[in-house]
Design a protein around this nucleic acid. Structure first.
Length: 310
DNA sequence: AAATTACACAACCGCATCCAT
DNA sequence: GATGGATGCGGTTGTGTAATT
């Protein structure tokens, strides 16, 4: 007896999600959480595979997502983390608040890869392309590489990453995920310790990073309702968090009206998923811990602004 | 203005892993 | 320990849009 397909292929819709479907999914998850993705489509009244629902939620509908291109600082962090972790996009994404593995993967493939090649750096090994021993690296997996080598990009980025690790530990008080990174760093990247503090490029990058206000806000703002990098995971989203103030502080606000989730002006309807939250009672979802009146108002104004754009 | 190319990103697919039985 | 189901992850493809010719 073979394994059952993850969903009944018959009658399951594929392709782009409609605004109506998005709304159904959001309402359902905000109301019930996602106890079991397989059951979600049925319970939410969607003709979708559970897998598809999960993907849609984690990659697009989650309220804490940042939209828009990665900042320079985020990009540098991705490069550094990739040098250490390889193509483990979910691990990398867990260190970038509001970013998804899919988003980072896409950005890597469309931007960073080319950028590194242009700089003469192998995006897989993070070593200079014309190195003699390049051939030997060809057989190495990114993971092997991450465990064994000191990459060029890592060398360049060490200072900034150390700043991140050090400071995020302090600010979050949580060391679980960072300790994993630290493990990788200490065992695999002696460069982290050895890199010259006088390395101009590293300092420059660190400077860039620290001057990137939105990025730093995400990392430092104790009041930020964004999870610290190591805390961004689905388990926490079971009892989801609303759009954070940090997110709304960015011009790339999560704009639900763009997605058609919010009623258009012509709908002349006051309901939205956020307003629905109010109806449900924010406390019902544990929102009271992370969503005060001020932020609710901020969120609603942001949404109104979004509506006014249409 | 039309055709072509490049880019951005949403979504799917298949395999891996975890976990309950 | 074996098995099967649910979920997660990474690779890849498809599609819409902007830029260029």
């Amino acid at each position: 007896m073979g394994r059952q397909p993850c969903c009944d292929k018959l009658g399951v819709k594929k392709g782009p999600w409609t605004a109506e479907e998005d709304k159904k999914l959001i309402n359902f998850i905000l109301t019930n959480g996602h106890c079991c993705w397989r059951a979600v489509p049925k319970l939410a009244g969607l003709r979708r595979c559970g897998k598809s629902c999960r993907l849609r939620w984690t990659n697009y509908l989650r309220p804490d997502l940042k939209r828009g291109l990665l900042t320079e600082a985020e990009e540098q962090l991705v490069i550094d983390l990739h040098a250490r972790l390889g193509n483990r996009w979910s691990k990398i994404a867990s260190r970038l608040p509001g970013r998804t593995d899919n988003e980072i993967k896409n950005h890597w493939n469309t931007h960073i890869k080319k950028k590194l090649l242009k700089m003469g750096i192998d995006p897989v090994t993070h070593e200079p392309l014309n190195k003699d021993d390049q051939a030997s690296n060809m057989t190495e997996t990114p993971q092997d590489h991450a465990n064994n080598t000191t990459s060029t990009t890592t060398k360049n980025l060490t200072t900034q990453t150390e700043n991140h690790n050090h400071l995020s530990q302090e600010s979050s008080g949580s060391t679980t995920a960072n300790s994993e990174l630290a493990e990788n760093s200490s065992s695999s990247s002696p460069a982290a310790e050895n890199s010259s503090s006088g390395d101009e490029s590293a300092l420059l990058l660190a400077d860039t990073l620290c001057n990137d206000e939105s990025f730093m806000n995400n990392l430092w703002d104790d009041n930020s309702k964004l999870s610290p990098p190591e805390l961004v995971d689905d388990s926490l989203w079971k009892y989801s968090c609303p759009p954070s103030s940090t997110t709304y502080g960015d011009q790339k606000v999560v704009n639900y009206s763009d997605m058609g989730i919010l009623p258009s002006l012509e709908d002349n309807c006051s309901s939205s998923w956020l307003l629905d939250c109010q109806d449900f009672g924010i406390q019902d979802f544990g929102f009271d811990n992370c969503f005060d009146d001020f932020e609710l108002n901020k969120a609603l104004s942001a949404i109104e602004m979004g509506q006014n754009l249409h």
